[in-house]
């Protein structure tokens, strides 16, 4: 346990410190880099609680894919963040109002909701010991056996979003020369070369 406690404080401290740096760093790229450090330490905390699969998925999905795109966008955008910052205080009342409304809604939802007996029954299924069912297998049970329809529907929602994004940005440009690799590979000397007998002094 000794080393675990040590690492918990290490990860927790770095996570909080870098989360603070995300909002206080002047350079937006530095902010994103600190955000990545926060994700990384959150993955470490997951690991300490024994949720190894979640830790690794957090790294693969958030740090390896989402944050890369985020970093891309921030690097490519030519936004004057210093000018934005000076105007930030003007919007503070509206932002505060939205925050309060969201907090109130959350409180109502959490305070007023009850767990339906069906789900409570499913949640009451005893958790098998780590020796017989590993973390990954247990998650697989929940996602692919107990809640397969919800999982599939979530996938469909993502698919619809993806198709929507493609439809919005797809342009069929006609003035572009496209490479047709199968046509290139299928070319033979017979289809590509014609032998012409040229009479001297005439040309083709």
């Amino acid at each position: 346990m000794g080393l675990q406690a040590l690492f918990f404080y290490l990860f927790a401290f770095i996570a909080i410190a870098s989360a603070f740096m995300v909002i206080s760093a002047r350079n937006p790229v530095h902010s994103v880099l600190f955000l990545i450090l926060t994700f990384f330490n959150a993955a470490g905390l997951f690991l300490l609680t024994g949720a190894e699969f979640l830790a690794m998925i957090l790294l693969v999905v958030y740090v390896g894919a989402v944050a890369v795109l985020f970093l891309f966008v921030v690097m490519m955008l030519d936004v004057d963040f210093a000018a934005l910052r000076t105007k930030a205080l003007e919007y503070a009342p509206i932002g505060g109002l939205i925050g309060i409304i969201l907090a109130l809604e959350l409180i109502f939802v959490i305070g007023g909701s009850t767990i339906s007996p069906e789900i409570a029954k499913k949640a009451a299924v005893p958790i098998p010991a780590l020796t017989e069912r590993s973390n990954t297998q247990a998650l697989g049970d929940v996602l692919y056996t107990h809640y397969i329809y919800f999982f599939q529907i979530a996938g469909l929602v993502l698919l619809v979003a993806m198709i929507g994004a493609i439809v919005l940005t797809l342009k069929h440009r006609t003035n572009v020369k496209r490479q047709n690799i199968s046509a290139q590979v299928a070319r033979t000397p017979e289809t590509a070369v014609t032998i012409v007998k040229v009479k001297p002094g005439q040309g083709i």
Binding site: E52, M56, I57, L59, V60, G64, V68
Partner: peptide, 17 residues
């Protein structure tokens, strides 16, 4: 570790940074 291959995959996806 139990998720060894995922660890390798996760860290090598970070190398792009």
């Amino acid at each position: 570790i139990n998720v060894g291959i995922l660890y390798v995959f996760a860290i090598s996806s970070l190398e792009v940074y």
